[in-house]
Amino acid sequence: MIEFRGVTKQFPDGTVAVEGVDIVIPPHKTTVLVGSSGSGKTTLLRMINRMVDPTAGQVLIDGTDVATVEPVALRRGIGYVMQNSGLLPHRKVVDNVATVPLLRGTSKREARAHALELLDTVGLDRSLAEKYPAQLSGGQQQRVGVARGLAVDPNILLMDEPFGAVDPIVRAELQQELLRLQEELGKTVVFVTHDIDEAFLLGDQVVIMQQGGRISQAASPVEILANPADDFVADFVGARRGKRALHVTEVDGQRLVVDADGRPAGVLAS
């Protein structure tokens, strides 16, 4: 369990990225932080592994204040996946995945063998192991990034807009893959995105953030749609624009679900 208690972050230039955040991130679930740019969602995420230290308040992991843990050791126990994968361009795929275990002193043979298994886990062919990141497609690089994040079998996996830089078709594929993985592994996933649809798809808990780093609402997708906390949330999730106001219409004997503008959203299963 990760807990934020009265967390504020003000950068030296005076901008307040996060202000007075209190939130509990439950274990073995996916929590999605969603908001537009400048809402402080990435800052919040990076406070968990001390890439950013709060100026006030505490971040606790299983009751331990992270401020008391040495940052390098802390980071080696937490998986991290970022946009553009952040892979080391001068290392082969397998060595990229094995990086953290090697840093922790695992033998090279063992680390590489485990890395190959992880490639299976994220659905990559082992033949890619000896390639360099630049020789992979964007989607493949992201999968390698996920494998690397899982390499030390961490309890916590931080994902910072991991699917932000790939095209929509690949993104949908990766989202499904993550759902499957999460069912299998049951990690505590904290996921940052600016895409509300992605948040609703992946999140057990969705945290909606607004400018200035405040939390507008933190609840399950169902709860948010049913009871948006305020106008900002209602706007943000599109409830008021009618995007989510779906109704059924019949075309050629098929029952279609369409939104308020008449755009089709799907076919109603009978």
């Binding site: 890439m51 980071r75 080696r76 991290y80 952040g86 080391l88 361009p89 953290v100 840093l103």
Partner: peptide, 13 residues
Amino acid sequence: RRIVDAARAMGMN
């Protein structure tokens, strides 16, 4: 810088 950032986030000193 993103590569360096990722290296730090992974736990490199």
